[in-house]
């Protein structure tokens, strides 16, 4: 997962109310690199105090700033190093590839059903951001040709641990909930445990691989 070094060309820092700033960049990779840089700067004290750093698809939100406008003016001069494997924790999730939408996904990919586990477990993913539910990570790393649409009718209950695909993302449901992603398998890993430190197995920036299990 390497990209040529780049600054924040084309980045826009949009004020959000009086205490927050939304930094918008062109690509998901730039958003992840910006997020990593913000965490580094916060760790070294180079960032003004901020309550929340919330990455998303093409943006990073900084909430709880004393002076968003001062920071907005600062971004132009930042250079953002590309993401490296070294700057993130790695997690391997064992998966039983027996999801309810496995046949559908195989058809969309144009492969046999038993090829899906081999292809999916051969990819490197990264948690771009969380949302939808505590500990639900949106994982990037799926090549464009393997993207599948959401189900036209969401399921009212998707079991905890279900591994699903939707658009550019792979996700794992931390607990049973309604959901519209195409389900390819299931893991027994505890994605979310508020009594554990860290509570979320898949925090933004974490690298993820899936492993064929059983």
């Amino acid at each position: 997962m390497s990209a040529p070094p780049e600054g924040l060309t084309g980045a826009r820092a949009l004020p959000v109310g009086r205490r927050a700033l939304l930094v918008e960049v062109a690509t998901a990779e730039q958003a992840q690199a910006l997020h990593a840089e913000l965490l580094r700067r916060r760790a070294t004290g180079a960032l003004p105090p901020v309550a929340e750093i919330v990455p998303a698809a093409r943006t990073v939100l900084l909430d709880g700033l004393d002076d968003p406008h001062a920071l907005a003016a600062d971004f132009a001069s930042w250079s953002i190093p590309p993401l490296t494997a070294a700057d993130a924790a790695a997690v391997v999730l064992p998966v039983r590839y027996d999801g309810a939408d496995l046949a559908e996904v195989a058809a969309l990919w144009g492969v046999a059903e038993d090829e899906v586990p081999r292809i999916h477990s051969g990819l490197e993913f990264r948690v771009a951001f969380c949302g939808f539910a505590p500990g639900f990570g949106y994982l990037t790393g799926l090549p464009e040709r393997l993207r599948v649409p959401r189900r036209s009718t969401p399921r009212t209950a998707v079991p905890a641990g279900s591994v699903g695909l939707a658009g550019p993302y792979t996700g794992v449901y931390p607990r049973s909930s309604p959901g519209g992603w195409q389900l390819i398998g299931r893991t027994d890993a505890a994605l979310w445990d508020p009594g554990r430190e860290p509570a979320a197995l898949l925090a933004p920036g974490t690298r993820v691989r899936f492993e064929v299990f059983g």
């Binding site: 959000v16 109310g17 919330v54 990073v60 939100l61």
Partner: peptide, 10 residues
């Protein structure tokens, strides 16, 4: 809009 962070009072 691609998903983005939300603040209190948005």
């Amino acid at each position: 809009l691609p998903s983005e962070g939300m603040v209190l009072g948005a």
